[in-house]
Design a protein around this nucleic acid. Structure first.
Lengths: 228, 228
DNA sequence: CTTCTAAAGAATGAATGCAAAATTACGTGA
DNA sequence: TCACGTAATTTTGCATTCATTCTTTAGAAG
């Protein structure tokens, strides 16, 4: 019997989240790492993680292999796992690819986004503007993230969404918010860019939005990494 | 992943070369699947693969988990692994994301590509044109693949390259070449698009090339899937 | 003959055990 | 005191084993 598409997808999701010990452990470990509970570059003994999560080494090692494949950790032969450090070059590559994905998201979103979805993004945009005026950096960034997330969601491409989420997880470990917050000029520049994003989105100007979003990410990187 | 999905290159390369069973097995299995030696959707008994590769289940299962994370296979809880079937929707998503990545690759390539690299691409382009005139579909597609690969390489972003390679592997299983080959109009249209790609590349017109490449992939999908 | 049930068989998920490699600890010599 | 070589401990990689779940099949009832 041929498994139909919807059913296999559900099954995969089920496997990933619940049911198997491996799946839950994988999600838990991922959060654990993304939230920065492990130092960069230091060795992570398997035994310690086993005790931490009350589990045997077999499922743990499976999860580590997957996390290595996702790029969150490094697995050196016979030398165990360590949280992957991001060099300046790595960060640049990450931002560029994220930019490419957001660029794609904008293009796709223009093809299918509804007026209601645009209105919702505009709502968050105005909220963000409010935070901007009040210098509430934390609130500002939350709205910022939300807007980009909404554009990706509006693209209606699950592969894009999951790929984007994976890279976003890697970046989340980097504390670049502080750098961005200090640069007031960058903040207002970003606001203007977001205005342009919304404008292009309203006009469903996919190609144009694509450009804007890529450059937006480029500028974000520049602000985060003045050294580069 | 990074070699593939953004996984750490050093670790993966080390694992692959330094004779860790898991690394070699992973690569072998990936090739084995990508080259289509396993039927879509049918159950893959672990025992059979163990015997096929003369190893125990532990490293095999680790490799399967990674392949599942890469999206090549499905792992259903307590029901084993099967090669993932691509629905029409999946294929559309794949092509769009590949289009986004190639679009990004073109943009980045325009920033850093050398005249020598462009000349090399032109060389393959003319070779491809030759195959096109002689109706040598096989040679045509090889050149086609090579050109896209060269653009991605010229982007100089290892994360982009590995992500792209991962998705390309998933698509490689789909035999769309036959469909494309039948449509002679599509072939000449593709040739014209490739001319435009080269032209934009010569002018280092990143934004323009970005558009062309995305649409090029869109048209490729349309040709491969007239039903959609 | 079909269909439902249940038990036997097979496959997967996880834990443990063992060998090889690496890291650490220790002792010797300068 | 420091450098170096060697042995002990730790850690990783893989195989094996046990437990649980799924699949298949034999059998009985309708």
């Amino acid at each position: 019997m041929n498994a139909d598409e919807g059913r296999s997808r559900e099954a995969v999701e089920a496997a990933r989240s619940s049911g198997t010990l491996h799946g839950e452990l994988l999600a838990a470990l991922r959060d654990f790492i993304v939230e920065g509970h492990l130092e960069d570059g230091v060795r992570i003994p398997e035994r310690a993680l086993c005790e931490r999560f009350s589990i045997s080494r077999t499922p743990l090692r499976e999860a580590l292999k997957v996390l290595a494949a996702e790029g969150l950790i490094e697995l050196l032969p016979n030398r165990g796992a360590r949280v992957r450090e991001l060099s300046a070059a790595d960060l640049r590559e990450l931002f560029d690819v994220m930019g490419g994905l957001e660029s794609l998201a904008g293009r796709l979103a223009c093809e299918r986004i509804t007026d209601a979805e645009i209105a919702e993004i505009e709502r968050v945009h105005h909220e963000m503007y409010h935070f901007y005026l009040r210098r509430d950096v934390h609130g500002y960034f939350r709205c910022n993230q939300a807007i980009h997330q909404m554009i990706v969601a509006a693209a209606g491409n699950t592969l894009l969404a999951s790929t984007y989420a994976g890279l976003a997880g890697r970046i989340r470990r980097v504390r670049y918010a502080a750098n961005l917050a200090k640069d007031r000029d960058r903040l207002s520049e970003a606001m203007r860019e977001h205005e342009a994003i919304l404008d292009a989105l309203r006009r469903r100007a996919g190609s144009e939005l694509s450009d804007i979003l890529f450059l937006h990410l480029r500028n974000k990187l520049k602000a985060a990494q003045p050294a580069a």
